[in-house]
Amino acid sequence: MKRTRHTLLWLQTLVAMLLLVCTTLALAATPALSPDEAAVDARLKAISRELRCLVCQNETLADSNAKLAQNLRREVRKLIADGHSDSEVISFLTERYGDFVRYRPPFKPLTWLLWLGPFALLGCGALMLGHIVQRQKQQDAPPPDAATAARINALLAQQNKDTLA
């Protein structure tokens, strides 16, 4: 009975985590395009934030004042104004400069480890956590009867008062 409840707790936590992940990923998706000047500016800014200034040490295209960065911003702006989609703009740049120009590496076999690694790690961590917690339980003595349990709880509460930190 108690065990089911704990399993439920972990399941709930897991579902909550997954939901959070999905929300974040959904929020990260890019918006649709629109023709007017301010919108072009906004899209230029959004795109160039994810692109690398090639000649600088480690700056985005949006932040750099290097000559090449200015030229590239001009070209990107032109492409946006001509109605090209974000992915077309990105491929214009990657055709010329390669994936190095993207701060968000594309998802392809070479980057599977990069993109999936953290979540695989999280999975391993969760398994390990479950394993350790489970092992602790297995080695427990059989649960005490109600009266003893109440006394133990009272003692625990007292001890917590003393040492909680």
Binding site: K67, L72, R74, R96
Partner: peptide, 13 residues
């Protein structure tokens, strides 16, 4: 003049 052809060639320096 505007560096456009250089961009097409992938020149970065």
């Amino acid at each position: 003049d505007d560096g456009r052809v250089s961009i097409d060639y992938g020149v970065y320096g």
